[in-house]
Write a protein that binds this DNA or RNA. Structure first.
Length: 266
DNA sequence: AATGGGACCTGCGCGC
DNA sequence: TGCGCGCAGGTCCCAT
């Protein structure tokens, strides 16, 4: 799915488009993505409501409709939102009172939408660790040095640190010159410090450039993000490292493809 | 506790 | 051209 920077880009763009707009109609084309409540209650519960606030927790988007009514959208891997006209590939369509549409796009159908009284009690929100921006360097050091997991797997563990996914974990490690294979408790204090700064930088840069479109992700206007072309290792297996020209290696870690420079990253 | 594999899904690019 | 395969930004569940 979109990681923190992509979801934040969506959130900011949507704020300009649908805040205080009324939902007049909801069309569910693929009911699989509606996890709760049942279909008719989902539609009935949304139609007539205004979007009061748009929040984000790590990679999850949350639309506040009332103090006790929230639409929670987890885009998972292939979900994205397209604003404007109704789209033929949409899985769910929200029509607003100004005649505009918000399309929930999700080719792989792995995402999920929920309408609930609250979001804080949802498992995949309740169990989130702090986002990198909420962490002090000392907290990050404690997290990293307390585990012996491979550092790349740790960075993607949402219960420890939330918002980082498979792209930015690889990019942060490249920037920090740390191998994704290192056991996290083997990192020196200086390495952890450098890694922490690298994470913050890469996430900030990715937000600035409106995310990476390496797969299905698009912004709400259907445009690609500008961060994709700034990635240094993701998807570059076999190509020369931008720093030392050594071919970028690809391995599997935690079940996910992982690219790194075997020479620069120790 | 940590790790590896599979499941959930569709669609794309690649090699033959 | 057409087909099969591998792979895709996430998360959960199971076995070891």
């Amino acid at each position: 799915m979109p990681e923190l920077p992509e979801v934040e880009t969506i959130r900011r763009d949507l704020e300009k488009k649908i805040l205080n707009k009324k939902i007049v109609e909801v069309k569910v084309i693929k009911k699989k993505v509606i996890k709760e409540p049942d279909l008719s209650e989902f539609k009935k519960g949304l139609e007539g409501e205004k979007v009061k606030e748009i929040l984000r927790k790590a990679k999850v988007l949350i639309f506040k409709l009332r103090d006790d009514k929230f639409l929670i959208v987890h885009l998972r891997i292939s979900g994205w939102l397209l604003y404007g006209e109704e789209d033929p590939k949409a899985r769910v369509v929200f029509k607003f009172s100004d005649g505009k549409f918000l399309n929930y796009m999700d080719p792989r159908l792995l995402g999920e939408l929920r309408l609930r009284k609250d979001f804080k009690d949802l498992k995949f929100i309740k169990e989130l660790g702090p986002e990198p921006f909420e962490l002090k360097e000392e907290d990050f050091k404690k997290i990293v040095s307390s585990k012996k997991t491979k550092i790349k797997v740790l960075l993607m563990d949402q219960a420890l640190i939330s918002g980082i996914g498979n792209v930015y974990a690889q990019e942060a490690l490249f920037r920090a010159k740390i191998s994704p294979l290192r056991e996290s408790n083997s990192l020196s204090s200086e390495e952890i410090s450098f890694l922490f700064k690298s994470i913050l930088e890469i996430l900030k840069e990715a937000i600035k450039y409106r995310g990476s479109s390496v797969d299905t992700y698009r912004d709400i206007g259907g445009r690609e993000g500008g961060m994709g072309q700034r990635l240094k290792v993701y998807g570059r297996q076999g190509e020369p490292c931008f720093v030392c020209k050594t071919p970028i290696r690809k391995i599997t870690l935690g079940g996910r493809g992982t690219c790194f420079c075997p020479k620069c990253q120790k």
